[in-house]
Structure formats: C-alpha cells, structure tokens
Amino acid sequence: MAFPGYDFASNFVEINRVGMHYLDEGRGDPVVMLHGNPNWSYYYRNLVHALRDRYRCLVPDHIGCGLSDKPGDDRYEYSLARRVSDLEVWLDHCQATTNLTLVVHDWGGMIGMAYATKYPERIRRLVILNTGAFHLPATKPVPWQLKLARGPLGAMLVRGFNAFSRGAVRSCVTRRPMSSEVGDAYCAPYDSWAHRIAVHRFVQDIPLRSGDRGFDLVTETASRLWLLKGAPMLICWGDRDFVFDAHFLQEWKLRFPEAEVHEYPDCGHYILEDAAEEVVPLIGDFLDSHPL
C-alpha cells in the first residue's frame, strides 16, 4: 500500500515472536524518532526526507501500530514497560547504542525518556515535540476525550468506530486542515477492530494514580531526567494541543531551563503537520549546530 510522501524501504525485526516494522534511512549519527498514539512512523516522513542525506534516521512503528504486527492480548502485553523493552531490543538489533539523538512525540516521549534515563551515557541530543516524561501536572485536568476513551464506551468508540484516530487527524492540526489523503494514511493501519487494539490500549495504559500499571516507571523516569541535562535539547511546541498543553511545556522548562524553545500559538498536537515548513528545518539546524 502506498502512502503520500512515505517512499521508504520497510524493515522488520522479530521481538519475542512479534514483528516490528521500522525505517532505517541514510547514514551518519543515529537519529531515533519515536511516535505516539494514534499515529505511526508516517508522522516523521518529512523529517526523514530532510535528514537522511547526513544522518541515519531510525523510526520504529511500536508493536500494534503502523505496519508492525497487531497481536492480541494473549501474545503481547500492551504496557509502557514492554514498550521500553522493545525499544532497547530494537536499538540493539540496529547496533545503535551510542551517540543517539532522540526525537520524541506524545507516548514516544515517555517511552524514549524511560530508555534515555536508563542509559544517559548513550544520549547526545534531544528533540521534544508535544510530549511528557513525567506525571500529569497537578494543574492539568484529564481531558474529557481521554476520559471518554478510557470509560465504558471506550472500546466501541476507539475500536468500533475508529473515533480516536479519525478524531486526531481533525483535532490535532489547528493551523490548517489535514488533507484527506494524509488523514487516510494516518488511519490506514487501523482498519478493523482487531487492528485498533494498540490505539485503545495506549489510552487505557495512561497511569494517572498510584497503583496504576506504569505509575512507578513514570515516577522513576521523572526522578532521573536530571541525568540528561548535559544533552542539548530543542523543544518545539504546538500551543493548541488539548493534552500536552502549557502545563506540560512549563514542566519541561522548569526541568531543562537551558533548552532551546520554540512555541507555535496557532498549532496543535501534530506539530510536524501544522508547522512542518518551520520545524523540520529548525530540527536540522539544531542537529547540525550541535555536532557530536
């Protein structure tokens, strides 16, 4: 199946008998791009095109997402800890364990920073795009959309009607509407009840209180973020994100006051869609200006 702007070779690795799809484009220092929910490696297509002439761009589809396998609960534990383990196994497979640049968005931030704080010596640069690596800020209420998706009607909405994916391509871009072709590409991997399992499990796995699965891992990761202060950090932020909003951005600024921050008041959660013309060159310049 062809997707607009996604003209890359597919690679696969088996992790615990489950297939993970990933991109491996270009040569040079590894730039690892981690997507969130409900998208997939398609989110980074423009950034890969811009960087692959001088960097090795490594972009996985998390298990259950994109072109990766979509196993049932009997074959895969859809948990944060498992995601972090998958990332570690995959990077070992790619022989990419030194001089890493992480580009993280949405759930990719929690997954990537859990890995980064476990191996801070491997991380050289960080690019943060509307994400978190800590608990929900005390001043931030849980958005109603997430409450609805986590509630009794969640399975029917997320897996039956694909409401989370379809809603994202409409509500997560606010500068200009997403084209139908691009929106269809985002949703294409999630074409059935069975294939939407990861989209639903990601929402269900958000640890909001002590005792929730993953809560302790988020606590541990947040407590170790200081280990990454030596790595240059670029933050590009869509201010109209309904989840990762100003409350999250303020937390990043407090933890990393030396970070280079660029805010986009008219942009939403999918910052690489809303502001690709500005953010993609900015990331390239940031990497080039901080050589390893």
Rank of each mutant, 00 (worst) to 15 (best):
Y6P: 13
C267S: 15
L157E: 04
G230R: 10
L23T: 08
E278K: 14
E263Q: 13
V84F: 02
A114M: 05
R150H: 04
A276T: 14
P60E: 03
S179E: 06
R170V: 14
Y44H: 11
T98E: 13
R150L: 00
L227C: 07
L126M: 15
F12H: 09
R240L: 13
W107N: 11
L34V: 06
T219S: 12
A198Y: 07
G26V: 05
L227K: 14
C57A: 08
A9S: 11
E251I: 10
W90L: 00
A198T: 06
L58C: 09
D212L: 06
A50D: 14
T131Y: 09
F242S: 09
K147W: 08
F256Q: 07
C172R: 02
G214F: 09
D74Y: 00
Y270L: 13
V243K: 00
D69M: 01
G5T: 07
G108I: 13
D53K: 08
V218A: 07
T221Q: 05
G109L: 05
C65I: 03
R150Y: 03
A275S: 15
N16C: 02
T131I: 10
Y6M: 06
P189T: 05
A168G: 12
G19C: 08
W40E: 01
P71E: 08
Y270I: 07
T221E: 08
G284F: 08
G238I: 10
Y42V: 05
I283D: 12
W144V: 13
F8V: 05
I206G: 04
F286M: 11
C65Q: 10
P38C: 03
P60F: 06
I123L: 12
Y6H: 13
A133R: 07
C172K: 01
S68L: 01
K253P: 13
N99M: 02
G154M: 00
M233Y: 15
A188M: 06
E278I: 11
G214Q: 10
V261K: 06
D69C: 04
D245V: 11
A138W: 04
M156Q: 09
L287R: 07
G64R: 00
D266W: 13
L67I: 03
V18M: 00
S171Q: 02
R52Q: 11
G183Q: 01
S10T: 14
P152F: 11
N46C: 05
Y119M: 04
F8I: 04
M233V: 14
R124D: 15
T101I: 08
W40D: 03
E25C: 12
H269Y: 12
L292N: 14
M233S: 12
Y264N: 04
I128M: 09
G154C: 01
R201T: 09
I271N: 02
G132K: 10
F256W: 07
Y186S: 01
E278H: 15
Y186F: 15
V279H: 10
Y78R: 02
R166S: 11
G160Q: 04
E25N: 06
V18G: 00
L80C: 12
L254W: 12
D24M: 01
W90Q: 03
E258Y: 13
D191E: 05
V203Q: 02
V158L: 00
D92S: 11
N37W: 12
Y264A: 05
F248R: 01
G230E: 09
G64M: 04
V142F: 10
F161N: 02
M110T: 15
L100Q: 07
V127P: 14
A81R: 04
D274Y: 09
P38F: 02
